[in-house]
C-alpha cells in the first residue's frame, strides 16, 4: 500500500498534466471522448492518442534507461528508419514474417550494440557516439530501400501497424506490454538500481563490482530494440518504409517524453511509467492541435508554449514556490527546526 502511495507521489504531476491537456481538448472539441468500434477496432480520439503515441512511447522506454545511466541516444529515429526498411525489404524479398521480424529486431540490436561499444568500450561521450548513427542511419536505410518508399502488402506485417488484438490497436498492445515487461524486469530485480548507480557515479559502481561495461552496452541494445519495434510499427502503419521520413526528429520527442516524465538528464533515478505518461502528453498535444483546426503555421508555436508551461511547472524553482505557498505544516516545521538548531 505504501509502495503504491510512493508510486503515485512520483507520477502525479505527469498524470495531472495529461488530465489537464485532455480536459482542454475536450472543452475545445466536445466529441473527444466518443469511442466506437469501426472495422472491429476501437475508434476515437483517445484511441488515436494511444495509437499514434506508440513510436514515441516505445522510444521513451529505451531512452529512459539510457538517460538513467547519464547517457543519451540520438540515433533512435534513424534506427527506426533502418529497421522499418529492413522489415519492408525482408517481406518483399519473400522471407517469411518470422524471419523478417527477426531481421528487423536484430538490426535494432546491432545498432544498439554499435552505440554501446562506442560508449562503454571506447569511452566516447554518448551524445557524440550516437550522433554518428543518427547521421549515418538514414543513409543506411536509403541504401536498403534504394531511395524509394518500399511498399508491401503482406497482411501479417501490416497487422503490426493497423491490426487489432481484442479490438485494441496492435501498436498500443505492443507498447503497453513492452513497458510493463521492462518495468517488471528492472524493478523486480536489482537491474534498475544498478542502472541508476551507473548514472549517479560510473566509477564508484565499477569499483563496487558492478559490471558497468556490459550493463551499459545492454542498455543501449535495449534502446535499439525499442527503436526497432517502433520502426516496424511505423512501416506497417503506412504499408511502406520511408527512409527519408520514418522516425524523423522522434529522438527529440523521446527525450522530451523522458524529461516531462521527470527523469533527470544527469542520470540516476528514473521512472518508466512517468516517461510513458510523458509520451502520451506529447501525443495528446499533437492530436489536440490537429483537432482544434488552427492553421498549421501555429502548430509548432502552440506545442512549444504548452511544453514550456509544463517544464516551468516542473522546475525546481517552481516546486520550492509551491511548497512555500502550500504551507505544508510538516515542511514548515522542518524548516523552522533547521533554523532553530544551531
Amino acid at each position: 500500500m505504501s509502495g503504491l502511495g510512493v508510486f503515485f507521489r512520483r507520477i502525479w504531476p505527469q498524470l495531472l498534466t495529461l488530465a489537464v491537456i485532455v480536459g482542454l481538448i475536450s472543452v475545445m472539441f466536445p466529441g473527444f471522448f466518443d469511442i466506437s468500434i469501426a472495422n472491429g477496432r476501437l475508434y476515437g480520439s483517445p484511441i488515436d492518442i494511444l495509437n499514434r503515441g506508440a513510436p514515441v512511447a516505445l522510444l521513451a522506454i529505451g531512452m529512459t534507461l539510457v538517460i538513467a545511466t547519464r547517457g543519451i541516444d540520438l540515433s533512435v529515429g534513424a534506427v527506426m528508419a533502418i529497421c522499418g526498411a529492413v522489415s519492408a525489404w525482408g517481406i518483399t524479398a519473400g522471407y517469411g514474417l518470422g524471419a523478417t521480424l527477426l531481421m528487423a529486431l536484430s538490426a535494432g540490436l546491432a545498432c544498439g550494440l554499435w552505440n554501446g561499444l562506442l560508449v562503454a568500450v571506447l569511452g566516447i561521450q554518448p551524445i557524440v557516439a550516437t550522433l554518428i548513427l543518427m547521421v549515418a542511419g538514414r543513409g543506411i536505410a536509403q541504401l536498403i530501400t534504394e531511395g524509394a518508399i518500399l511498399t508491401f502488402n503482406h497482411e501479417g506485417l501490416i497487422f503490426f501497424g493497423s491490426g487489432s488484438i481484442l479490438s485494441v490497436p496492435t501498436p498500443v498492445v505492443i507498447w503497453v506490454l513492452t513497458g510493463a515487461l521492462v518495468t517488471l524486469v528492472v524493478r523486480r530485480s536489482a537491474l534498475g538500481m544498478l542502472i541508476e548507480a551507473i548514472g549517479v557515479n560510473l566509477r564508484a559502481s565499477t569499483l563496487a563490482g558492478v559490471n558497468t561495461r556490459v550493463l551499459l552496452i545492454a542498455v543501449y541494445m535495449a534502446s535499439g530494440l525499442c527503436a526497432s519495434l517502433a520502426g516496424v510499427i511505423a512501416a506497417a502503419d503506412i504499408r511502406g518504409a520511408d527512409a527519408n521520413n520514418a522516425g524523423l526528429w522522434l529522438e527529440l520527442d523521446a527525450i522530451l517524453a523522458v524529461v516531462i516524465g521527470g527523469t533527470s538528464l544527469l542520470g540516476g533515478r528514473f521512472s518508466l511509467i512517468a516517461s510513458l505518461v510523458g509520451a502520451l502528453v506529447i501525443q495528446a498535444v499533437n492530436t489536440g492541435i490537429l483537432l482544434s483546426g488552427f492553421p498549421p503555421e501555429f502548430n509548432l508555436i502552440i506545442k512549444a508554449v504548452i511544453i514550456l508551461i509544463i517544464l516551468v511547472l516542473q522546475s525546481p524553482a517552481m516546486r520550492t514556490l509551491l511548497v512555500f505557498f502550500s504551507r505544508d505544516p510538516r515542511g514548515v516545521a522542518e524548516t523552522e527546526k533547521e533554523t532553530v538548531t544551531p
Binding site: 472539441f29 466529441g31 476515437g44 480520439s45 488515436d48 499514434r52 518508399i149 511505423a234 502503419d237 503506412i238 511502406g240 520511408d242 521520413n245 520514418a246 499533437n286 492530436t287 490537429l290 483537432l291 483546426g293
Partner: peptide, 14 residues
C-alpha cells in the same frame, strides 16, 4: 505518408 494518415484520422474524428 505517416503525417498524411495521422492528420486525416483527426479530420475524420473532428
Amino acid at each position: 505518408r505517416t503525417k498524411g494518415k495521422e492528420v486525416m484520422e483527426s479530420f475524420l474524428k473532428a
